[in-house]
């Protein structure tokens, strides 16, 4: 029993990081129907910005988190303006290829700038081990990371569902061709979406760099995982991205725990295919309803 709970904590932590990345995929797809394959690399850049702020400027954790989210949001807006804006009405495939190009560019840029070594963002949060009950341990930083991640997701949900800009985002997701007639500035809404998606990915990057390690190509594998989580949850849906992420992390962790670590990816992805066969549009996705 203790082991199940311990593994559950492991899964929640992993799922929280997947979710922070998957949200950006899902939101961007909802707004402009683009599968932004550079998103995993934006997450990586966020992690490295956090690393530099922590190592070179030795800022406190809250400032690192906020400043990194802000800077990465700017990067997201810039990428959309420079690389995707002119292609908005082009064939979808051109946009996807451009996104892959942007991702490759970011990987190599970071590799040139900081080198290929594996690093870790120095611990900013307390590493104290808390013994919950017999056998179950959790470190304080783990709890904080899970807590902040979930808080960010709630804030996002409130923003999209309760504010005017959020309403405009939902409108753009619903029909990008009609909303300009209502006086909504589509370019601004698209920028806001990229900014939010990138900022969340940056938060994920910092948490990831604290708990695990970072290197310039880390965004590829994690980007794929988060993309798959978003699709399983129902791409375009915020709730779906979160649900899909926790499901993916849960399947991965429990495959290792009760089946075999050799089969981790094999079983995880086989199960995900089955989920998609049952829900072709993802668990929370609906064929043609509003998507954000």
């Amino acid at each position: 029993m203790e082991i199940i709970i311990q593994q559950l904590i492991n899964a929640v932590q992993l799922g929280a990081v997947y979710a922070l990345i998957a949200l950006g995929y899902s939101m961007v797809y909802g707004i402009i129907r683009l599968i932004n394959f550079a998103h995993g690399d934006i997450f990586m850049v966020g992690a490295f910005i956090g690393f530099l702020l922590a190592v070179k400027f030795k800022l406190p954790f809250v400032f690192i988190l906020l400043l990194t989210m802000f800077l990465t949001a700017l990067l997201g807006i810039a990428i959309e303006r420079i690389a995707y804006h002119k292609l908005r009405n082009a064939h979808r495939m051109s946009l996807v290829i451009t996104a892959l190009g942007v991702g490759t560019f970011l990987e190599n840029l970071v590799r040139l700038a900081v080198g290929p070594q594996t690093r870790q963002i120095p611990a900013q949060l307390s590493n104290n081990i808390l013994h919950l009950t017999n056998g179950i341990v959790v470190t304080e930083d783990k709890l904080l990371i899970i807590g902040i991640s979930i808080m960010l997701m709630i804030v996002l949900w409130l923003f999209v569902n309760k504010t005017l800009i959020g309403k405009a985002m939902r409108a753009v997701a619903d029909n990008i061709d009609v909303v300009p007639l209502m006086g909504i500035n589509v370019d601004m809404i698209v920028s806001v979406t990229f900014a939010i998606g990138s900022a969340l990915a940056a938060a994920g990057g910092i948490f990831f760099g604290q708990s695990y390690s970072i290197e310039p190509y880390m965004g590829i594998d994690l980007g794929w995982k988060a993309f798959i989580a978003a699709v399983v949850g129902g791409i375009g849906s915020i709730e779906g991205a979160v649900v899909g992420s926790f499901i993916l992390a849960g399947i991965e962790v429990f495959t290792v725990a009760y089946l075999s670590s050799n089969l981790k990816n094999g079983i995880a992805f086989a199960l995900l295919i089955i989920l998609l066969v049952i829900w072709p549009y993802g668990i929370m996705g609906k064929p043609s309803l509003k998507k954000v």
């Binding site: 311990q6 593994q7 492991n10 990831f208 695990y212 190509y217 880390m218 670590s261 981790k264």
Partner: peptide
């Protein structure tokens, strides 16, 4: 006797199993 794949960074599931 637990395994992972190159580039994995989260070993907590395997290590939890090892701890037991």
């Amino acid at each position: 006797f637990e395994t992972y794949n190159t580039k994995d960074t989260d070993f907590s599931a395997q290590l939890t199993k090892i701890k037991a």
